Amino acid sequence: MDWVGFENRDWLGFEWSPWLSLNPEDEELSEIPTDEGLYRVRHVEREGLEYIGETGRSVRGRVMALARGAYAGEMPYRDPHVGAPCMWAVRQEDGPTFEVSYITPDEATDKATRKSLEAALIASYRRAVGKSPTGAFSRIIPGYTMSSYSKNENRGGLLPEGKAEPYAEPGIAPLEWQSYEDPTAVDWMGLKWSEPLELAEVSTTVPATNGVYRIWDSTSPHPLTYIGESANLRSRLKTHKRNRRNKLLFSYSAPDGIDAKHKRLEAETDLIGAHWLAVGKPPMDQH
């Protein structure tokens, strides 16, 4: 697997478009198709990727929403594109030279597959460089505060010196990718997983703490049914117990350091991405 080729035209075996200017005043963006797809953004003055995204509508429309926000006169709201505030802040610090590249593979027409492929792209990027794309998981760069959604009418911008923004807090390192090709392994992705139990046995023995979990059917050839994260594993798994077949198996892991939403999402994304890379499909009920 080519973990480090995240700027290449054949990254993860897909045929990516050439890099195009993200500036909404450039005509290049009109070349992007209106199909479902995925896209990646880089800044020519910075190392790595700034953003990876997906859409079930129009790649052109989604990229244009990001472009208009990134090049706006003031920091945009989180909608219509949650990554735009961060890209706007990057532009203030390092200039306007963003570029975008996209794919519209047949797999992108299915929502679960498209979202799992997005997770695979982010997870493989994290493995290659040791961190997430700059604007992933609703993040902002240090020195800036994040805008709200438009209904709350709070625009972000440059922070006063000495002030901190929770959305700029560093994320977690990539998981260890141990036994990544075996999603039900006891050491899958280097985590310490609990002993598998049936959902019917969810009880107070499950900690009410931050963690990630996996659910599967031991009689099915499909590796996993669902991968999730929660600030309260016990409560979340009890919800699955009520809504799913009690004979399904579950296992959880509660590693240190995932006490914030974006950190749990990073761990969950590594797991979903590893599942897609290992078996070429999302967990059966992942949405």
Rank of each mutant, 00 (worst) to 15 (best):
F6G: 03
R9G: 05
F14C: 11
E15Y: 11
W16G: 13
S21G: 15
L22N: 12
P24Y: 14
E25W: 14
E27A: 15
L29Q: 12
S30K: 15
E31K: 15
I32L: 13
I32E: 12
G37K: 10
Y39K: 06
Y39N: 07
V41M: 08
R42W: 03
H43A: 08
V44S: 13
E45L: 05
E45I: 00
E47M: 08
E54W: 01
T55S: 08
G56S: 06
R60E: 11
R60P: 04
R60C: 06
G61Q: 04
R62G: 05
V63Y: 00
M64H: 05
A65F: 00
A67E: 02
G69S: 06
Y71I: 01
Y71R: 01
D79M: 03
V82N: 06
P85H: 03
P85W: 01
M87L: 15
V90Q: 01
Q92G: 00
Q92A: 00
P96S: 05
F98L: 00
F98D: 01
P105Y: 04
D106L: 00
D106W: 00
E107V: 09
A108I: 07
K111C: 02
K111N: 07
K115E: 11
L117T: 04
L117K: 05
S124W: 05
R127L: 11
R127W: 07
R127Y: 08
A128M: 00
A128G: 02
K131P: 00
A136C: 03
I140L: 03
I141Q: 05
G143K: 05
T145N: 12
S147L: 07
S147V: 08
G162Y: 11
K163Y: 15
A164E: 15
P166L: 03
I172G: 04
A173K: 11
P174I: 02
P174S: 02
E176D: 13
Q178G: 03
S179L: 09
S179W: 06
D182H: 09
P183R: 11
T184N: 10
T184R: 15
V186N: 10
V186Y: 12
W188I: 12
L191D: 09
L191A: 08
L191Q: 12
P196L: 04
E201I: 07
V202H: 11
V202A: 11
T204V: 14
T205R: 14
V206Y: 08
A208L: 10
N210S: 14
D217L: 08
T219N: 09
T219M: 13
H222V: 15
Y226N: 08
E229K: 15
E229S: 14
A231N: 14
N232F: 09
L233M: 13
S235A: 10
L237E: 03
K238E: 09
T239C: 01
T239A: 06
T239E: 12
H240M: 02
K241N: 01
N243G: 02
R245M: 00
F250S: 02
I258F: 06
I258A: 10
K263T: 02
K263W: 01
L265D: 06
E266P: 04
E268W: 08
D270F: 09
L271V: 13
L271E: 10
G273M: 09
H275G: 02
W276S: 02
G280I: 10
K281S: 13
K281I: 04
P282D: 04
M284C: 00
